[in-house]
Amino acid sequence: MNRATTLTALLTAAAAITTIANPARAGDAKQTTFGRMPDGRAVAAVTLVNDRGVSATVIALGASLQSLVMPDRQGKREDVQIGYDSLEGYLAKPEFFGATVGRVANRIAKGRLSFNGHTYSTPVNNGPNSLHGGTKGFDKVLWEVTEVKNGPTASVTLRYVSPDGDMGYPGKLTTYATYSLDEKNQLTIEYRATTDKPTVVNISNHSYWNLAGVGSPRGAMGHIVLIPADRYTPTDATSIPTGRHASVEGTVFDFRKPTAIGERVRDARDPQIAYGRGYDHNWVIGDKVTSEQHLMARVVEPVSGRGYELWSNQPGLQFYSGNFFDGTITGKKGQIYRMGDAIVMEPQLFPDAPNQPNFPSIRLDPGQTYRNKMVYKLFTER
């Protein structure tokens, strides 16, 4: 199925979708304090609310989506983001819940990257590799809230300045993260970054979705997923891409037709599933960053009817099926998080790109602006 065919099918399906609740009014943004860091600094929290029963709370630690509340087909509102109810959990065992991940999202092989004629090292924190920026990536720092807006599109913008040499990466990088919620039930996350010297940048969001709602015993393996990609990037046993693209045809990675995650997530006859204990791979949506957005994924939880379409300008989608939750984390509502309790969909450039000459470049030069814009188009099916 090509992308045009997929989009046609989705538009047909959209006719059966009921948007959430009543005519639009202006949105609201309210700032509070979520807690305090060990050094006493306040952690801001901003809650965005629209008139259709949707609200999103963003905290300044990691510029993270801490909560997203939306109704089901009966109008029952539930938080669909797993994480913690208080700051203490995010400090003690962060797990990237809802976080902005960077300066380079995903993995760098052995924590070493060849770039601009030099070799740089970044801390190893995921087996033999570096993950999501190293031991103190963007998820573990306190961002500054620079702007909060009310109106038809309520929003909050946060800023973090990563100094030259931070986690081994060259250049001072100034990054802005903007979360916005409109009356069409679109949650938009946009990242922009500039640098004072050549560097590498690949920023994404690591929200964990359980559309059944926090505390639901159903978990996320019953979610129905569509990914309009003909290819994915296989990995070695440490989750580093081999450098080639493989067809999804006839494999457990074929989500070109809506498929329940749980149907094939534990099919270890495919060694790729054994490597990642499930899905933790990059799907090839395109070959470069685009000026316009395109469909990355469509996800529906069939019991509640809650769902979203994810659109972005990025060429890659990292789909992670929550494979490493092992019952050692207690989160919201006192729930113990188990394997498959939530999923992550990260629009981004490809993993280990600085060491993969055939992958799209993640280089950023002075005078350029890095941009990753992702839109979650929330809906409820009858």
Rank of each mutant, 00 (worst) to 15 (best):
residue 369 T to L: 12
residue 107 R to L: 07
residue 254 D to Y: 08
residue 370 Y to L: 06
residue 167 M to Q: 15
residue 140 K to C: 05
residue 373 K to I: 10
residue 210 N to Y: 08
residue 14 A to V: 00
residue 26 A to E: 14
residue 190 E to N: 14
residue 1 M to Q: 09
residue 176 Y to C: 11
residue 104 V to G: 00
residue 14 A to G: 14
residue 286 G to W: 04
residue 353 A to I: 00
residue 248 V to A: 10
residue 31 Q to R: 14
residue 205 N to L: 07
residue 181 L to I: 11
residue 382 R to S: 06
residue 188 T to R: 14
residue 165 G to N: 03
residue 10 L to Y: 01
residue 281 H to I: 08
residue 14 A to D: 12
residue 210 N to D: 14
residue 14 A to N: 12
residue 303 V to M: 09
residue 103 R to G: 04
residue 148 V to P: 02
residue 98 G to S: 07
residue 213 G to D: 04
residue 138 F to I: 04
residue 345 M to F: 13
residue 107 R to H: 08
residue 367 G to T: 10
residue 350 F to Q: 00
residue 210 N to F: 07
residue 340 G to A: 02
residue 68 L to K: 02
residue 208 Y to C: 06
residue 51 D to R: 01
residue 218 R to K: 14
residue 209 W to Q: 03
residue 303 V to D: 12
residue 249 E to L: 14
residue 269 R to K: 15
residue 142 L to N: 11
residue 189 I to R: 10
residue 125 N to C: 04
residue 299 V to D: 05
residue 214 V to K: 05
residue 24 A to K: 04
residue 122 T to A: 06
residue 276 G to F: 10
residue 214 V to Q: 12
residue 9 A to D: 03
residue 303 V to C: 03
residue 375 V to G: 08
residue 213 G to A: 10
residue 160 Y to T: 05
residue 237 A to D: 15
residue 265 V to S: 11
residue 221 M to K: 13
residue 89 G to M: 06
residue 2 N to E: 14
residue 204 S to Y: 03
residue 288 K to G: 09
residue 330 T to M: 10
residue 9 A to H: 02
residue 308 Y to M: 15
residue 351 P to E: 03
residue 344 V to S: 09
residue 223 H to C: 10
residue 68 L to H: 07
residue 263 E to G: 15
residue 72 D to Y: 05
residue 205 N to Y: 06
residue 127 G to D: 08
residue 165 G to Y: 03
residue 122 T to V: 12
residue 197 K to Q: 15
residue 171 G to N: 02
residue 95 E to D: 12
residue 270 D to T: 01
residue 133 G to L: 06
residue 178 T to C: 10
residue 257 K to Q: 15
residue 320 Y to R: 03
residue 376 Y to H: 15
residue 205 N to Q: 14
residue 2 N to K: 11
residue 163 P to I: 06
residue 283 W to A: 07
residue 375 V to R: 11
residue 346 E to K: 00
residue 192 R to F: 10
residue 219 G to R: 00
residue 371 R to C: 13
residue 115 F to E: 01
residue 117 G to Q: 06
residue 317 L to C: 06
residue 352 D to L: 06
residue 71 P to H: 12
residue 72 D to M: 04
residue 56 A to Q: 04
residue 285 I to Q: 05
residue 153 T to Q: 13
residue 195 T to G: 09
residue 7 L to H: 01
residue 19 T to I: 13
residue 161 V to G: 11
residue 121 S to V: 11
residue 282 N to H: 02
residue 208 Y to E: 07
residue 154 A to E: 03
